[in-house]
Amino acid sequence: MTLTPRLDILGAALADTSRARMLCELMDGRAYTNKELASAAGITPQTATAHLRRLEEAGLISAARSGRCLYHRIAGPEVAEALETLSALAPSDHLYRAQQRKGARLKMLEARSCYDHLAGRLGVGIAQALLASGDLLPDGAQYRAVPSERWAKLGVSLSGRAPLARPCLDWTERLPHVAGPIGREILTHGLTAGWLRRIRGERGLDVTPAGAAALRQILGLRWEGGQCCPA
């Protein structure tokens, strides 16, 4: 008997449009009910129940009850990063067509959460700025954080633990953004400080005027019209 990873189980779980849509909805790191995920996938709650059971059996999501509601979420950061990487390998012609529509501005492409860290143009822009400034250094399969005053301004504490950060391939930009504890702290601080605002009913994030000012002051980045570039 040959022992091999059961990729067939994962492949079968992913090989359904409704399940893929629910996984994408869960990729913002929050927990959702059966009814909310059914709405996102455009299916009935009864059908969603069967799909969610399939995803849980494959180890892609977990469920926890709170009061009368059962909440579903991505099983962990390693699952989220694997799904992001798979998304980067998938055909993206639909993204190009969507962006060519007159007046199109897709918030999810500009800034979004990838489980517990920032993604999209904003996430990639921040990663590139931290690498260019020397605050992050490539270190094998991870990033090594170099102590500086900039980290505290971004809400990141490097004291008392290993400064873990690692690249996560962004599926829309095809470039890495920052995952790991440092990526999580940057996103958390951005939301707490009011630099970022979740968009109701969407996975995208809004960058507030305060956030745009912070990006310029701390990282030397200009955020304008959904684009992130050196100031």
Rank of each mutant, 00 (worst) to 15 (best):
T2P: 10
L3G: 05
T4F: 12
T4Y: 10
T4S: 10
P5C: 12
D8F: 02
D8G: 09
I9V: 14
A13S: 07
A15Q: 05
T17A: 13
A20M: 12
A20I: 03
R21W: 02
L23G: 06
C24H: 05
L26R: 03
G29L: 14
S39Y: 03
A40S: 07
I43W: 02
I43F: 10
T47E: 06
R53F: 07
R54E: 09
A58Q: 02
G59W: 09
R65I: 15
C69W: 11
Y71W: 14
H72Y: 15
A75Y: 09
A75T: 01
E81W: 15
T85H: 13
L89I: 02
P91A: 10
Y96D: 04
Q100C: 12
A104K: 11
R105W: 15
E110P: 01
Y115Q: 00
D116A: 06
L118C: 07
A119C: 15
L131N: 04
G134M: 07
L137E: 12
D139H: 11
G140A: 10
Q142Y: 15
Q142W: 13
Y143S: 03
R144A: 13
P147H: 13
P147A: 11
L158H: 10
L164F: 14
R166I: 06
W171Q: 03
W171G: 02
T172L: 05
E173D: 02
P176Y: 15
V178T: 14
I182H: 07
I182W: 10
E185L: 06
G190D: 11
L191C: 04
W195A: 04
L196Q: 09
I199W: 05
E202W: 06
R203C: 09
G204P: 00
L205C: 02
T208G: 05
P209R: 02
G220M: 12
R222W: 01
G226Q: 07
C229Q: 14
A231K: 02
